[in-house]
Design a binder for these strands. Structure first.
Lengths: 211, 211
DNA sequence: CCTATATTGACAATTAATTGACAAACTTTT
DNA sequence: AAAAGTTTGTCAATTAATTGTCAATATAGG
């Protein structure tokens, strides 16, 4: 549809625009200019206009951008107008934290099942009512239910192995919290959340600020 | 000490080098060349050499890099040779997940306390033995104990308020999991982990891969 | 000890990302 | 209805990041 390739840097910023526009909507703002957004977000107005223009002319000279319209358009660009059926691998604290976070559900990310190695969890429900299955039944489940995203909230060795299996079962998107990179075919998408690396960056910047 | 300013892009990659070097150490590798690392990490050898050279000449022509030496040097650059005393605000699943993750402890990130609004949690211990205190005692605790990092694992409104208080108490580094940006003085460091934005990027890339 | 081979560190060339500037087009005021 | 004031979209200029190249210098093998 969109033949233009959008640079990584722009895609990284899109969700942040979406968040600020959502806040503006909550505050009943009807319109916003790139200059106002610039001040709120601490990035240049020029960058905002340039970023948004990759996807089409959403604004109007002399007026700015209509908040609700722009919010919805960015939502569509981000794929938030679709429902994503999601499974969470690992029902530890991290898996539970993700399952319990209600805002994902609101944006169309529906958790349809959790999987865990521990026998005693199988057959129970998470606090938000998501069924927990035993890990051994993972492949059967995926064969019988459409799943568009798998969340990997398990240790790295298990994550590599489970990802391999799920790719074979047709899963094409992973949200990876394991501390490893996944080796997947080119048509499979992986978004990594490497928490320990994030913490190390914080540590680095702490030292830099001192000097 | 280091007057040279290191670009954001380089700092983002440092922890990943550290992770790969750690794996090489586990596999008893004594040396590694930028070419080998390049193949493992899927980035150019030129970039690896250039990145590492920002911090000094760690390699040797005809030999490559000594794995253990380079691992330790990058660790020092990242500040992993120091102990960071860390408090976690919010003892929900996310806070517990962070508290229970043993690898942080190994790298010098010591969780010295958790804080939560819920009365029934106050006075108890997390599974890893971290004491949980009531949120009201937060400022007293920080006044009496050195704390270098505060982890914000609470909703956004609370996070903004708690961060304000902690900055006033002298905390200079935040690991922020709340879905908001924090407004802090220039000498305070914030590392954001915006999970919903990460998930939106995944969603975006899923659609892009289809076309 | 000499030669062939490997590999870094430095720098130049290239590519990507950000910022600045302004004409065009809208809104608001008079 | 005209004039004044905003603000976008676009493009050029600038800055930042990545990649390619190669002399210098090491290792390894006779």
């Amino acid at each position: 549809m969109e033949p233009k390739v959008i640079s990584r840097a722009v895609v990284e910023r899109l969700p942040r625009y979406y968040r600020y526009l959502g806040e503006l909507m909550e505050n009943k703002a009807e319109r916003v200019s790139s200059g106002e957004l610039s001040e709120m977000m601490h990035i240049t107005a020029s960058q905002i206009r340039q970023d948004l223009n990759h996807f089409g002319g959403f604004g109007q000279q002399g007026y700015g951008y209509n908040v609700e319209y722009l919010y919805n358009e960015i939502g569509k660009i981000l794929g938030l107008n679709q429902v994503h059926r999601m499974i969470i691998i690992g029902a530890g604290h991290l898996g539970q934290a993700i399952a319990n976070y209600g805002n994902f559900e609101r944006r169309g990310f529906r958790v349809v099942g959790m999987f865990d190695q521990r026998e005693e969890l199988a057959g129970t429900l998470s606090p938000t009512g998501v069924p927990i299955y035993h890990m051994d039944t993972l492949e059967d489940f995926v064969a019988g239910h459409p799943v568009s995203i798998a969340v990997l909230a398990i240790p790295k060795a298990a994550a590599v192995e489970v990802a391999r299996k799920l790719v074979a079962c047709g899963v094409r998107a992973f949200w990876n919290f394991a501390h490893t990179d996944l080796d997947v075919p080119p048509d499979v998408v992986v978004e990594n959340v490497h928490l320990s690396e994030s913490l190390m960056r914080l540590s680095y910047n702490m030292n830099m600020n001192k000097e």
